[in-house]
């Protein structure tokens, strides 16, 4: 097996007596979608926050392409190639779709931000932004204000901004949330394609989508990973079934 692109080893995080992450070990290899599932309150959000750099773990390490980024800020990790999408769309709502995508392209450039030159006339940035928008099917909405987009289109834009960053790793926090059947049907093939651009660590509640997409699945329960395996094996794993008893997965698996 090749060296994983993202390797999380022994992450532990406590809030008082609550152990939100307990010795979490997880990796993500090139070309794969690794889904992280777990019931509500399992500690998924806490784990994502630590991977993205918003929260510092109590112990453990996070390595991105072999480099230890545990002590690095969100900004530094983004610059190292960790691109994330947010569970709740996190965009500049007053700006246009194109401007949001260009912001990503600007960040990816990692240079000084010009104070005087017109950013909208920067053809390099525009092209990067345009290509990402086309990739997610938002090309014709470039001139729209984000505030005027539908929920589904905002989810697509989140992905487009992540793409402009030339990511080494995509960290996707519930990209299907609130999308409905039609939106999900669009998003699934898109993620299928994107995993060849950068491997995806996918946090998702939609089990149909997860089992369709994932190459591997890890199950997080009470802050601990109880199983990491191929979808078929996860489906029949008795511990997972116990954790999900009565949940969607239980019914699917039967």
């Amino acid at each position: 097996m090749t060296e994983p692109v993202l390797r999380i080893s022994g992450i532990t995080k406590s809030f008082g007596a609550l152990r939100a992450s307990e010795d979490v070990t997880l990796d993500l290899c090139a070309g794969e979608i690794h889904a992280l599932i777990g019931p509500n309150g399992a500690g998924k959000s806490t784990l994502i926050a630590q991977i993205a750099g918003a929260l510092a773990p109590d112990s453990g390490t996070i390595k991105l392409e072999g480099r230890d980024v545990t002590a690095q800020s969100t900004v530094a990790r983004a610059r190292a190639g960790l691109a994330r999408t947010f569970q709740i769309s996190s965009l500049a709502m007053e700006d246009t779709v194109l401007q949001n995508a260009m912001l990503g392209a600007l960040g990816a450039r990692q240079g000084r931000l010009g104070l005087f030159g017109s950013v909208m006339r920067d053809t390099g940035l525009r092209e990067t932004a345009r290509a990402a928008l086309d990739e997610v099917g938002l090309g014709e909405f470039a001139g729209f204000r984000v505030g005027d987009l539908s929920h589904g289109q905002r989810r697509q834009l989140e992905v487009a901004v992540a793409l402009t960053l030339k990511p080494r790793v995509l960290l996707m926090d519930e990209p299907m949330a609130g999308l409905g059947a039609e939106g999900t049907a669009q998003m699934v093939p898109m993620l299928q394609r994107l995993k060849h651009t950068a491997p995806i660590l996918l946090i998702e509640h939609d089990m149909d989508a997860v089992f369709q997409l994932a190459d591997r699945i890890s199950v997080l329960v009470y802050g601990q990973i109880i199983a990491t395996d191929a979808p078929d094996a996860i489906r029949t794993d008795p511990r997972v079934r116990e954790a999900y008893l009565g949940d969607d997965l239980g019914e699917d698996a039967v």
């Binding site: 800020s73 900004v75 947010f86 996190s90 007053e94 912001l103 600007l106 960040g107 990816a108």
Partner: peptide, 18 residues
């Protein structure tokens, strides 16, 4: 562009590495 975006949503700006 970046300053204006930071006013609206600073998490977004951090997430693109600025």
């Amino acid at each position: 562009l970046a300053l204006n975006a930071a006013r609206q949503n600073e998490d977004r700006v951090r997430a693109v590495g600025i």
